Simulated scan of single mutants.
Amino acid sequence: MTALTRELRTLWRGPLNVPATKLPPRTLITETVLLLLLSLGSSAIYSILSIIKMLQSTTALNQQTSSLNNSQASQSWLDLTYQLVGVGLGVVPALLAIHLLGREVRRPASFLGIDHTRPVHDIAWGLCTFVGVGVPGLLLYVAARDLGFNTTVVAADLGSHWWAAPVLLLSAAQNAILEEVVMVGYLYTRWSQAGWKLPVVIVVSAVVRGSYHLYQGFGGFVGNIAMGLILGTVYLRTRRVLPLIITHATLDAVAFVGYALLHDHLGWLQ
Rank of each mutant, 00 (worst) to 15 (best):
L89T: 04
T59E: 15
Y82Q: 01
I123N: 01
S67K: 01
P108I: 01
L84E: 10
Q64C: 10
I98T: 08
I123E: 01
Q72A: 08
G113R: 06
Q64N: 08
F111T: 02
L89H: 00
S57L: 08
S74G: 08
V92M: 14
E104H: 13
P108S: 04
R107W: 08
V85P: 02
T58L: 10
D115T: 05
L100W: 15
I98D: 04
A97S: 07
E104W: 14
V120I: 13
A124D: 01
S71C: 05
T117R: 14
L84N: 07
L61F: 05
A94F: 12
T117L: 12
S66P: 09
S76I: 03
S110C: 06
V92C: 10
L101R: 04
V105E: 06
Q64L: 12
I98N: 02
A60S: 14
S71T: 07
T117Y: 06
A60P: 05
N69T: 04
T117F: 08
T81L: 15
A60R: 13
A97P: 10
S74P: 06
A109V: 04
A109L: 07
S71L: 05
H116F: 15
R103W: 14
R107A: 13
L101T: 05
G86V: 05
V92A: 13
R106T: 12
N70F: 04
D115P: 07
A60W: 08
P108W: 00
T65I: 11
T59G: 09
Y82C: 04
N70S: 12
T65R: 02
V87S: 13
G88V: 03
V85M: 06
S57Q: 14
Q75W: 09
S66Q: 14
W77F: 05
L101I: 10
V92Y: 11
V87N: 14
A94R: 14
V91I: 15
R118H: 05
L89E: 00
V92K: 11
P93T: 04
L112H: 00
V105W: 02
L96F: 06
R103A: 13
S110H: 10
L101H: 07
A60D: 11
V87D: 07
G88T: 08
L78C: 03
R103D: 11
I114M: 03
H116P: 00
Q75P: 06
S67N: 10
H99Y: 15
A73Y: 02
S74K: 08
D115W: 01
V87F: 15
P108L: 02
D115N: 14
